[in-house]
Structures are given as structure tokens and as C-alpha cells.
Design a protein around this nucleic acid. Structure first.
Lengths: 145, 145
DNA sequence: TTGCGTGCAAAGGTTTTGCATGGCA
DNA sequence: TGCCATGCAAAACCTTTGCACGCAA
């Protein structure tokens, strides 16, 4: 009943899509904005239209290949390649955002998974790691300021 | 050293700020967009400039009186009055927001304080409890859905 | 050949900024 | 009086949409 969602959109294999996919896959574990992606291909000398990037990335989100993070209302959305397998649960991956410099920090930590477990067990709240962002001050800004 | 953050901005008590604060306080538990707020005051026949609402609300977020939510990248930000009491003990008090019903849940829990400690010690990230919102599914919606 | 994909241009909508004026302390 | 707050207009910004053309199947 649900697998349609992934196949329904089944589209063409265009050159742009292949390049985009290859690039994101090669950078698994890091996150991009659409602007970042466009900059990359422009720098390589073989640009891809902004609109196309938006549309392809959105499609990959639907397909479960890419994770989308809407970190903050005003800043551009972030995307990250996660592949087909993990699309189920990124349990121990969370995000921190620095209120000063705006840096987005990926965090892998069992402590966080444990905390999620605690929230679920004792407070009956099922934390959504994709949506949740921890705000605070990053190490760099803490020392500087 | 840090309490400045709350007091530093300490500004004038203008008529607009008082009215804004009174309105938000009277509607504690519901959330607004800036546009909603402007509409209200325009309807009452005593409008407040959009820019002013943006600036005042942002200030209240800094002061910990109001919580800001980034529901989605493209939609306007949501704000909600949470009062001063909760920000009094910022160490063990956090906010959870249900993605389904929109309920805002205040949570007091030492486990969270411990987690904040862990973030600071091991990841060098100084969590800001006032700004951070935990998104997820609340107990009620979990059972229902 | 059919129809989706592409990309340019332009629109849409939220939030920020510049600047002159007004109001608090 | 000094300084912050206000609010209008305009800019900045990300994202979406319209449309003609190109390319995959």
C-alpha cells in the first residue's frame, strides 16, 4: 500500500539526476542546501539549473533516498543523502545548531538514543529526530565570545 | 555573565509592547503567526506595524517569554506565549511539541539536565533550553493514531 | 512519438533593513 | 534631552510556478 509512494513517481534517468545522485552519494554524511549543490556543479563547470535541483531533491525525499531538514524558518532547507537502507530510523543521529554562527552540527551519540528512549518510556513522548534541532552555542563561539 | 542576555535588551515599555504582551498572554496555549497577530490588532481597530511585531516578538523569544516554532521551511513561523515561570529554572525544564495535535508540553526532568551536561562535557555544545523544542508525537496522538 | 525533465524568467510570500519620525525615561 | 521604538517603503531571500524546448523511453 505504501510502496507506491516510491515507485509511483518513477521517472526518467536523466543526466542531471545521475550526476546529482552520484554527488550526494559520494558526500554521504554531510548536508547541503540547494544553493550549495548548485555552487558545486557550477564550480565544476557543468551547472544544473536551480529549479531542477529543487525538483530532483524533492523527488529523492519522496523516494526516501534523501532526508530533508527544515532547520529554521528563514534559512534554506538542508538535505542529506541517507541511501535506501537507513531510511527507516536514524536513531542516534541528531542536529545541533549554533545560535551565534548558525553552524549546523551532526551528532552521533548513544547518549542521545538513550535519552530518546527515556522520553518514550517515562514521558510517553516519541521524539522525532528529523524535526528536532538542539539550539545552543557551539564550541568555537563559546571560546570566542 | 549570561543573565545579560535577558536583561541586556531591556527596552522601553511602549504601548505596542504592552498590548502585544497582554494579547499573547491572554491567549496562552495557542500559537500565532506574525500575520495572525497583525490581523487581530487591525481588526480591533488599533493596528501595530508588521515590522514592530516582528521585532517585539523576536525580543520576547530572546527573553524567554515566547517560544518560536519552525513548522516548515516555507510557511510563516509560529509563536506562542509560555510565560516567565518556566524560564526561571531553565536547567530541567524543556518543551515538547506534538507534530500531530500541536500540543505544547512542559517537561521537568533531571534526565534532561543530565543530557545537557553530557552535551556540554563530551560534545562541547552549550544547549539553550529556552530556544530548543523537542518535536515528536505525544502520548495521546500515539494511542489514537 | 509521447510525455516527462530542464531551465529561464517571473511570481509568491516571509522576513529584514534603511530611514525619518515619534515616544519613553 | 538622548536614545530607543515605530512603521512605511523597499530590499533580500528562498522557493514555487509558467512555459517553451529538449531528451528519455
Amino acid at each position: 500500500m505504501q510502496e507506491n509512494k516510491i515507485v509511483a513517481r518513477g521517472g526518467y534517468h536523466t543526466r542531471q539526476r545521475e550526476r546529482l545522485l552520484a554527488y550526494l552519494e559520494s558526500m554521504e554524511g554531510t548536508h547541503f542546501t540547494v544553493s550549495d549543490i548548485c555552487d558545486h556543479f557550477r564550480a565544476v563547470g557543468d551547472a544544473i539549473g536551480t529549479t531542477t535541483v529543487y525538483r530532483q531533491v524533492e523527488r529523492m525525499v519522496d523516494e526516501g533516498l534523501v532526508q530533508k531538514y527544515h532547520i529554521d524558518a528563514n534559512t534554506p532547507a538542508c538535505f542529506e543523502y541517507i541511501g535506501k537502507k537507513q531510511s527507516a530510523d536514524p536513531v542516534s543521529c541528531f542536529h545541533c545548531k549554533c545560535e551565534k554562527c548558525g553552524a549546523l552540527i551532526h551528532l552521533h551519540c548513544d547518549e542521545i538514543a538513550a535519552f530518546k528512549e527515556h522520553l518514550s518510556e517515562h514521558h510517553r513522548f516519541e521524539l522525532d529526530p528529523v524535526r528536532t534541532v538542539f539550539y545552543g552555542i557551539c564550541e568555537h563561539c563559546r571560546m570566542a565570545g
